[in-house]
Amino acid sequence: MTVTAVDKDDPKMANGMLRYKILSQNPQSPSYNMFTINNRTGDIITVAAGLDREKVPQYTLIIQATDMEGNPTYGLSNTATTVIRITDVNDNPPEFTTDAFFGEVHENRVNVIVANLTVTDKDQPHTPAWSTVYRIIAGDPTEHFSIPTDPTTNEGLITVVKPVDFELTRSYMLTVEAENEIPLARGIHIPRQSTATVSVRILDINESPEFSPNPKTIKLEEGLPAGSLLTTFTAQDPDRFMRQTIR
């Protein structure tokens, strides 16, 4: 920023020639001289590296303007307070709170949340640098699951979008990836995304027997005597792992 002081004396004379200086910085972290000021123009600039919004989101500087070209003995002074807010950049990727998550779901169900994935992100909440996008990168070739994001909690909601069949697959081992809505800031040399595994157990339910083919076409000649066998219907029970008898 640029700070400006006004002196009613003649600006061409020493009485009206101003010089600026920083009297104090609060907090003094990570060093006491994070900023400097051009003593003639009042331009405040950064001098030291280490600005980190996650550690110090705001600095307060006390600025002094002195006439007589800054002469501390003869010059008259006044002070002002400047507030410098540190804005966020995406310098922290989302990190899963654990390496492995677990969930279960009954077969043939859809639009059911199987598991909640949780991450931590040190960037400013509810910004693109904090909001997380989840993707399944392995373990679901037929795309039975999706992971929308809860905008309030930033959790990933593993959801069944296509019915799963216990008789075909009793469990899934998904590999999921999390990254922010926007890329990491330039110069940040840390992994862009975090990965975790999700074990999904499929629960069996009692499914109805099925006729095949259905409908079934029969051709018969007229005049058959009563009691003649026309055809035999056979139904199959999908629940191969349940001991059930069809009637």
Results as ranks from 00 to 15, higher is better:
Ser24His: 06
Val112Ser: 09
Thr87Ser: 11
Arg53Ala: 13
Met34Ile: 08
Thr120Val: 14
Leu157His: 09
Ile218Cys: 12
Val119Pro: 04
Val161Cys: 07
Asp99Phe: 13
Gly50Gln: 06
Gln64Trp: 02
Arg85Cys: 00
Ala14His: 02
Tyr172Gln: 03
Pro93Phe: 03
Asp150Phe: 05
Glu179Leu: 10
Gly50Ala: 07
Leu174Tyr: 08
Thr66Phe: 03
Leu229Ala: 08
Phe145Val: 00
Phe35Pro: 04
Val56Gln: 02
Ser77Ile: 02
His106Ala: 09
Glu95Cys: 05
Ser77Asp: 07
Leu230Asp: 07
Ile62Val: 14
Asp10Val: 00
Glu69Thr: 08
Glu107Arg: 05
Ala178Leu: 02
Phe211Thr: 01
Asn108Gln: 14
Val110Leu: 10
Gln236Gly: 12
Pro93Ala: 15
Thr79Arg: 04
Gly50Val: 07
His126Trp: 14
Ser77Thr: 11
Arg170Ile: 00
Glu177His: 12
Tyr32Gly: 00
Arg201Ser: 15
Glu222Asp: 13
Ala185Glu: 14
Glu179Gln: 13
Leu157Phe: 03
Asn38Ser: 11
Val176Arg: 06
Pro27Asn: 05
Asn111Pro: 02
Gln25Val: 01
Gly227Glu: 09
Gly50Leu: 06
Ala80Asp: 05
Glu210Val: 15
Tyr172Asp: 01
Val200Tyr: 11
Asp123Val: 04
Val110His: 02
Arg170Thr: 13
Ala185Asn: 12
Glu143Val: 01
Arg40Phe: 05
Tyr20Asn: 00
Arg170Lys: 15
Arg201Met: 13
Pro215Gly: 10
Thr232Asn: 12
Met17His: 07
